[in-house]
Amino acid sequence: MTRRDALKAFGGAGTVAVAGCLETENSDSEGLSGNINIAGSSTVFPLMSAIAEEFSSDYSGVNIDISSTGSGGGFSNHFCPGNTDFNNASREIKPQEEELCANNDVDYIELVAATDALTVVVNNEADFVDCLTIEELASIWKSDAVQTWDEVRDEFPNEEIKRFGAADTSGTYDYFIENVQGSEAGHTDDYQATERDDTIAQGVAGSKYAIGYFGFSYYYNNPDDVKALGIDNGDGCIKPSLDTASSGKYQPLSRELYTYPAMSSLAKDHVAEFARFFVEQTTNEELVAQDVGYVPLSDEKQEEQMEKLEAAIEEAQG
């Protein structure tokens, strides 16, 4: 199986366990061993999985377990209670999550992992729509959402909209509210909610009048399943892509992705080494862009993240 094929599988997975390969010539080169538990964002999940796979080929004694729980689900149920070493997130940690972590004496740092182009998709047979304005998109997803396509635009068919999207434990859900509908407008309850991108894609693929949204990586690795819409934020219709996300043209759905390592975990050599490896890989064009489908960090941004990490490791192990 190629890494690209593996990533297609990761897109539909809820949990993946990555163990070191005992056959690898360079494995266990520094005698590292131990377990690393990671939860959080389904959007960051394929990137973390791909990097963990690379790391484990060199370190046979390190076992990495990654769960796709949603950014908020990861913070609230796993990371801030002190049960995981990292939390992946598709948005920044919220004040209430910061408070929960503080109450449990969980200190952490924030590391930028990549840039995503949050992707809105429709059925491949939905030939009536190729682009939506932000206002039209908001009308579909706000709390008092429209019910039929012709309420979005007069020339659209008088057919009921079927919605598939991120669960309310997801950072993608939070990001959509803040950057599409606006916090006052909220998010409709009239949709199928899930943390699994493949479930969203299957739902949209199963109905001509469906719409959904998820991180760009799943669409990038499964481009024939559904049709990606362009978004018009006032400067014309822009399709999601690595180029438009990198250039800043794909607004407001281009966003940074994060991982949060716990300081107590960075005190352990095998976790610290994995964190260093993760940051090193964030500029890996082949892995981050070509295989996973996100925009890698610039060299300058990577250097900034590595300096932050090394300072945290020094503090944690001092």
Rank of each mutant, 00 (worst) to 15 (best):
L100Y: 05
A205C: 05
H270M: 08
Y250V: 04
Y218S: 06
D198N: 14
L253C: 12
N123I: 06
G70M: 12
Y258V: 00
G203A: 12
V106A: 05
D235H: 14
R163C: 07
I200M: 12
I211F: 11
D116F: 04
A39T: 14
Q305F: 00
K239E: 15
R91W: 11
L47I: 06
T84N: 13
A138Y: 03
G74S: 09
P81Y: 08
A275N: 02
Q251E: 14
D190W: 03
K249R: 09
N158Q: 15
E256K: 11
S139Y: 13
A245K: 11
P223Y: 11
V226I: 13
E256I: 02
F274M: 01
V226M: 08
E53N: 03
E178H: 15
L287V: 10
A228M: 06
E92D: 12
S57Y: 14
T169R: 00
L32R: 06
R3V: 12
E53K: 01
E256F: 09
E54D: 15
P296W: 07
P252T: 08
A102D: 01
E23I: 11
I140C: 03
S139R: 10
A205V: 03
A117L: 07
V106F: 03
A145N: 10
F278R: 02
S27M: 02
E110W: 11
N83G: 08
K94C: 00
F128M: 08
Q181A: 06
L7S: 11
V288G: 08
Y220Q: 08
S254V: 07
K308A: 05
E99D: 11
F176T: 03
